[in-house]
Design a protein around this nucleic acid. Structure first.
Lengths: 182, 182
DNA sequence: GGTCGCATGTAAGCTGTTACATGATTGA
DNA sequence: TCAATCATGTAACAGCTTACATGCGACC
């Protein structure tokens, strides 16, 4: 999956691993994240596979930049991936639910405190997503850096981010009141 | 994480890897899944670490069963893990959103078809969760196999499963209509 | 003087997936 | 006869995290 994300970004134009990481933090963070170590190693592997090419750019004062460009083979496997629809729902892995699942024998007050903490954590996510939305709608769209249609699709995914956090907070709030009644 | 899930199940009573896998499919599947290969290898590793012990049970006709029991060290690290609250929201990795994010240049009809397919996939999830709910409320709770309080907590996580799928379908439906208007 | 941003990388280890492998019994 | 269920395992790989490592310039 990380491979297609990297190809997807480089398709917008030649890019360094560092820039991809920055872009991900301001666009895909609500549904996908990666450490810089994984991005750099995967880009190198993709270069060996002939999907992308790179060239070093020297800079005064700053460290050198390795700029990656999309090669035909890379464009092709990205397009092939997009053309074949995903036929199964993505399985969920939600650590917090594992904890709740096994929390029947815990101190009820500690469980309640943890649920309260997570309400706060998910409220903070919404604040972050609002900043992302502003950035997409005001900075990127107005400056015409990225085509409008791209931003529309990015906003679709952000919409899901908001809905997810809203749903999560509702569930936490309901669970909190049930725990208090027990 | 898989380690704590295995310990959590074995805490209910001695269990084989096969049984843990079955239990997971009827209880944690909506927020965590694991392949049998990972379960078996992790159980073996945990035995070497002194967290669980196992004994082979011979059976006529059927293959031998390796039954795992919780050791004090295993109970302790499970309790320690539960006592330390999770202080960050679980990051999401949602393949389908990656596809939507990079779908601006795809054939709109193919994107629409894929969104429709996912509405169906998530509706099917709800049907499965309803069967799980019946199993918990009617079979398990009435037969008094598992303490009522445990089932309450399991139902909390299942409630999240329903809410997630409902939210997902609402988002897909909204996205579908926006795509059709474009 | 300290931290932040720029910019890249390696290495070790853990987690997770896919495929291969066996073999008896039960029921359609 | 065919598939499913019971029951366990190994091996190869792919994916991901954490820590280590460098070094300049700008700003407070």
């Amino acid at each position: 999956m990380i491979k297609y994300i990297l190809l997807g970004f480089i398709k917008y134009g030649p890019m360094t691993g560092y820039e991809i990481k920055q872009n991900m933090e301001h666009s895909t963070a609500h549904f996908w994240h990666a450490h810089h170590s994984q991005i750099y190693t995967t880009l190198r592997k993709m270069e060996q596979e002939g999907l992308v090419s790179s060239q070093l750019q020297q800079q005064e004062g700053s460290p050198d930049r390795r700029v990656y460009s999309l090669l035909p083979a890379g464009r092709q496997i990205l397009n092939e991936w997009l053309e074949h629809p995903q036929t199964e729902a993505t399985p969920i892995k939600e650590d917090f639910l594992v904890r709740i699942f096994f929390s029947a024998t815990r101190d009820p007050q500690e469980v309640i405190a943890e649920v309260r903490l997570h309400i706060k954590l998910h409220q903070e996510k919404i604040i972050i997503y609002q900043a992302t939305q502003n950035h997409l709608e005001n900075d990127l769209r107005c400056k015409k850096i990225v085509p409008d249609r791209e931003i529309d699709f990015w906003l679709f995914t952000l919409d899901m981010g908001f809905r997810f956090e809203k749903m999560y907070i509702e569930w936490l709030t309901e669970t909190l009141s049930r725990l208090q009644q027990m």
